[in-house]
Design a binder for these strands. Structure first.
Lengths: 75, 75
DNA sequence: TACAATTAGGGTAATTAGGGCT
DNA sequence: ATTGTCCTAATTACCCTAATTG
């Protein structure tokens, strides 16, 4: 099952640095550093504050779930 | 408009390696080894640091507790 | 306009990753 | 075989003030 939420960027829900930080269990400053380093896409408000695409954040969380790929059981 | 949050694992509370280590009374490095060996699920921050699901950790702790509390239960 | 909360910056501690070793 | 400790490099957390947000 592949939920391909291909939403236009206009309808995309945006998250604040604090919300993203809560999801990753990190400090909001850390999310800012990710954006500065280009590790996560960001949109700037006219005042300079960052906003993040919810779909991108969720996919990052889901993708990094499994650490060690469990090999299939030996028959 | 009612958005039924279909978030499988994203809104799960996460714990840091140090927090998990404190709960198990082990060194944080040991928790890292568990993750590398696939004995415990882990999520990676974009920077490479690991986060662990609180529910999974609690479940593992419950198993330890029952093992330490209950006498050998198999006839 | 004023207000409380959040964020952007910059600097300095504290954790963590990774490997190797006992 | 699993855990603990030592090391370095990298990432993250907490301190501050000023600006933006809603």
């Amino acid at each position: 099952m592949t939920i391909t939420t291909t939403q236009a960027s206009s309808n995309e829900r945006l998250l604040t640095p604090g919300e993203v930080a809560a999801l990753f269990r990190v400090d909001p400053k850390t999310v800012t550093r990710w954006a500065s380093a280009g590790r996560i896409g960001s949109i700037r408000t006219p005042g300079g504050h960052r906003r993040f695409r919810e779909s991108e954040v969720r996919s990052m969380l889901a993708d990094l779930t499994s650490e060690a790929t469990l090999p299939p059981s030996r028959p």
